[in-house]
């Protein structure tokens, strides 16, 4: 069962160099590979947007980084993650962490299968230079290389 961040974000789940017109489009573009691979249904994409409409841009967890997600339900076929880089940045109306340059999309099929990947994600967003490396990636392979967790101190 693949559960680490680089295992979940396969090369076909990485979209680089996007320039979405809105934060809603950024979430839709980030989710497109998950939709294409059948991991999620259309309903999940709209619910990720609803979460922000309802509760505000709290999904922007660190400077420049958003973790789009919603509650697991029937529209998630399997646990998966995808990533979108927006080198020019897109506003999510977050007071401190705008503009967002990296959108990760998390679809969890249950309450625990994404734990390890989320741990890897938290390690990365703690480190602004790691975020910079991801946003600067020129290929999906590059991007996945930059996901490998830094050595724990």
């Amino acid at each position: 069962m693949p559960t680490s961040l680089p295992q979940l974000i396969t090369e076909d789940h990485v979209v680089l160099g996007a320039s979405p017109a809105s934060w809603q489009d950024a979430i839709r573009e980030a989710a497109a590979p998950l939709l294409a691979s059948g991991a999620i249904g259309e309903g999940y994409v709209e619910r990720m947007i609803e979460v922000v409409d309802r509760f505000g841009p709290y999904i922007v967890l660190a400077p420049g980084v958003a973790l789009a997600h919603a509650q697991p339900d029937g529209s998630v076929a399997r646990t998966a993650m995808s990533a979108l880089t927006v080198p020019g940045g897109i506003a999510f109306s977050h007071e401190e962490n705008d503009p967002v340059r990296l959108v990760l999309c998390l679809a969890a099929a249950d309450a625990t299968s994404h734990l390890e990947a989320l741990k890897g994600f938290v390690q990365i967003i703690r480190d602004p230079s790691a975020v910079d490396r991801l946003v600067a990636a020129h290929s999906p392979a590059d991007f996945r290389g930059a996901l490998t967790p830094a050595p724990v101190d």
Partner: peptide
């Protein structure tokens, strides 16, 4: 909001 992403982080 969802109880599995940001809360868990």
């Amino acid at each position: 909001g969802a109880g599995l992403g940001s809360s868990l982080a």
